[in-house]
Nucleic acid binder design. Structure first.
Length: 375
DNA sequence: ACGTGACCTTT
DNA sequence: AAGGTCACG
């Protein structure tokens, strides 16, 4: 049976691309509530589904390493769902880096070097992590405008926005209302298992593609999701999928990428289960709207606590008006990449990452030489 | 246009 | 009560 890849074991073929940890931190970026499709399968190794393929990612100080599994490693389903031909034994990548067998045994025979595939997969990663955006430069600009950001970003470097598939992003985010990350994780997993195409199985874990719009739109879906403990969100998912297909078409969501922020936001808000917060999340996380700032109760706390944000003091809930005001406040402070800045502070406030704040400068001594002094 | 509850499920 | 939305007043 196929197993999850581990870099040090050398049992699988790995490839890499140059990427400093200050530009990308997998542990923070993949577990901060943007995507619910990744889990840590070994220390520092993250396995998940992206672009219809199963990946394991890990990183060293200067490199992002990746292994892509063959979808046909799945045993026991039909064979007509494969998007990917059997290419599993490349021994060398196009940049000449090798990491097969590490320092250990080398059982596998070299077969072929398919640099077309290499290029395609590397490009998928660059797109998904938006590596064209230079995070170091962005942090520097944001830190200059906002001392609090600078303090937080010092510890939480490498948090970046994913560029997710719009369908996956929208329907995952509809699940998030009145909910916690841990529970959403399970819900999305059950959703894919019930309605998505199987891709492969690794160490007792099966991986599934995210369901298609037509699968989500089927009339039987609401009852199915009720059974899977989606509660009142079950009908939101089915009705939104149906509404998109009936009144807009398959390409509509992706088309919102080339539409201005507020227009895309309003379009999303016509869908059941999609209000201000979810619409802004989808805009930011999948539609290239870097200025979208999702406002939830948590972000509201941050505004009040860290920025002395006074408006709406006696309020119980976030009204439309308050939502607009807080969003504008942050956009004015941070500029066109306000959404990216918000994600850093949001991540830093997650309870799972609190311990990072306690341990002092243990490993960041070297890269901060260029900065001016600080207390 | 702005401000209150009900809503599924789990801690 | 929780990382919200919808349907009223």
């Amino acid at each position: 049976m196929a197993k999850h890849a581990v870099l040090s074991s050398g049992a699988k073929m790995w490839r890499s691309l140059a990427c400093a940890k200050s530009e990308l931190r997998l542990d923070l970026t993949l577990a901060c509530g943007q995507s619910f499709r990744w889990r840590e399968t070994a220390e520092g190794h993250w396995t998940g589904v992206m672009g219809g393929r199963v990946w394991t990612l890990t990183q060293t100080e200067d490199s992002l390493w990746y292994h892509v599994y063959n979808n046909q490693e799945w045993q026991g389903e039909g064979s007509d769902r494969k998007r990917r031909a059997g290419v599993s034994l490349q021994m060398e990548n196009k940049s000449g880096k090798k990491f097969k067998g590490a320092l250990k045994k080398e059982e596998e025979e070299p077969v072929a070097v398919t640099s077309v595939q290499d290029t395609e997969e590397e490009e998928m990663l660059r797109d998904y992590f938006q590596l064209n955006v230079k995070l170091g430069d962005l942090y520097k600009e944001l830190g200059a405008a906002d001392p609090h950001f600078k303090r937080i970003a010092y510890i939480f470097s490498g948090v970046r926005m994913l560029r997710q598939d719009p369908t996956e992003c929208l329907f995952s985010l509809i699940c998030t209302s009145n909910n916690h990350i841990s529970r959403i994780h399970g819900m999305v997993e059950r959703l894919c298992q019930a309605l998505g195409a199987p891709l492969c199985q690794l160490d007792q874990t099966s991986y599934y593609n995210f369901p298609s719009l037509s699968a989500l739109a089927d009339n039987s879906v609401e009852a199915c999701l009720r059974d899977l403990r989606f509660g009142y969100r079950a009908q939101f998912l089915q009705k939104s999928a149906k509404q998109i297909l009936d009144t807009h078409g398959l390409q509509w969501l992706e088309g919102l990428r080339s539409v201005p922020y507020l227009q895309a936001r309003d379009a999303l808000r016509t869908l059941p289960g999609v209000g201000n917060k979810v619409a802004d999340c989808v805009c930011l996380m999948s539609l290239d709207k870097t200025e979208a700032v999702p406002i939830d109760t948590h972000v509201w706390q941050i505004a009040k606590r860290d920025y002395n944000y006074a408006s709406g003091k006696g309020q119980k809930t976030i009204t439309d008006k308050l939502n607009r005001e807080i969003g504008d406040f942050f956009r004015q402070l941070w500029g066109p990449y306000a959404g990216w800045a918000q994600s850093v502070l949001f991540c830093a406030d997650l309870k799972g990452f609190q311990k990072l704040k306690e341990m002092p400068q243990l490993k960041q001594a070297k890269k901060e030489e260029t900065d001016e002094e600080e207390d």
